[in-house]
Amino acid sequence: MTKQPNPTLKAILEYGPLVAFFIAYLKLKDEIFTIGGTDYQGFIVVTAGFIPLFLISTGLLWKLTGHLSRMQAVTAVLIVVFGGLSVWFNDERFFKMKPTLIYLLFGGILGFGLMRGESYLKSVMEGLMPLKHDGWMILTKRVAGLFIALAVLNETIWRTMDTETWVYFKTFGLPAAIFLFFMFQTKLFQTYSIAETKEGDEDAG
């Protein structure tokens, strides 16, 4: 059963690890840590700390809400896998690839659903905004396109720019892009909202 936790606490658990990663990176980015005879850059050490922090936050969020979406579960797995690979091989590229793979995976899943005439996005977000079927299909196409675009953008930035630029992009750019995307979907929500349709029918009657 899904519970409704305090919104502030929920936001802290969702975004706290990312903010902590950003702050820790700024403090340790120029440091070199020698562990077991191997030198690790600050980015790798911060990544190693981010993994358990993210898992703890996700676990607390699960306990508070009684629910963990497939998207959250997949994200947690990929963070462990690719963050772990970065630490194990002492190579930051694995962790930088992680957003690319997440967005490609989610975009691909949504695209597969669309080919079957279904909106998998509906099963994740229906409780937040009830829409008619056509609305869900249009929104799903747009979100799938967004995910593919973000995957390409992430690859471009980490491969062509320095690590600090990528960290700023990961911390602020990606969330801002998703926020702005949904802000620009207002007309779609108004047009296909079930609540709006019912209200219109009542007025007509």
Results as ranks from 00 to 15, higher is better:
G200T: 13
L78N: 14
R159K: 13
T2E: 05
F94E: 15
T197R: 14
F33Y: 00
M115W: 00
G36C: 04
I32H: 05
G84F: 02
M137I: 11
I109K: 11
M137D: 06
P52D: 08
E164N: 03
Q190L: 09
K132F: 01
M161L: 04
S86R: 03
F89W: 15
T58S: 13
M137K: 02
K27T: 15
K170V: 12
L78C: 12
A195G: 11
E202G: 07
L128K: 13
L55D: 05
F179Q: 15
S86G: 07
I23S: 02
L55N: 13
L188E: 08
M115V: 02
A144V: 07
I102C: 10
R116I: 00
D30K: 03
V87R: 12
G83R: 06
N154W: 07
F181I: 05
P52T: 14
M125N: 01
F54S: 15
K3D: 13
I12R: 03
L128T: 13
L139Q: 05
A195L: 13
A20F: 06
G173C: 07
V80M: 10
I56D: 03
G36S: 10
F54K: 14
V152S: 05
K63R: 11
G59D: 05
F184C: 14
N90R: 11
G111F: 01
E155N: 10
F89T: 15
G117I: 00
T75D: 13
I138A: 06
F89K: 15
L85S: 05
G49L: 11
G107S: 00
S69E: 15
G205I: 08
G127L: 08
I35H: 12
T100A: 06
T2N: 04
E92Y: 10
R142A: 08
S119I: 12
L180C: 09
M115A: 02
E118N: 04
K132P: 04
A73V: 01
M115C: 07
V143N: 09
L13I: 02
L9H: 05
T163E: 04
Q72D: 15
T8R: 10
K98E: 14
L53K: 10
T2K: 09
I194D: 08
L128M: 09
L18K: 10
V167F: 02
Q41M: 14
V77S: 03
L139W: 00
L104R: 03
L9C: 10
K98V: 13
V152A: 11
V152C: 04
L28E: 13
L150T: 12
I23W: 05
M71W: 06
K3A: 14
F182E: 07
T186Y: 04
L13P: 01
L105V: 14
T165P: 00
F169K: 14
V80W: 07
L128N: 13
F147T: 09
L101R: 05
V45C: 04
F95I: 01
M161P: 02
F43W: 08
F182T: 11
L101I: 13
Y103V: 15
V77D: 04
F172K: 00
R93E: 12
T186K: 10
S57C: 03
G83C: 00
V46M: 02
L150Q: 08
T2I: 12
L26E: 07
M1G: 14
H133D: 14
T191S: 09
K187T: 15
I79D: 06
F147Q: 09
A177F: 08
G113H: 00
K141Q: 07
M71I: 15
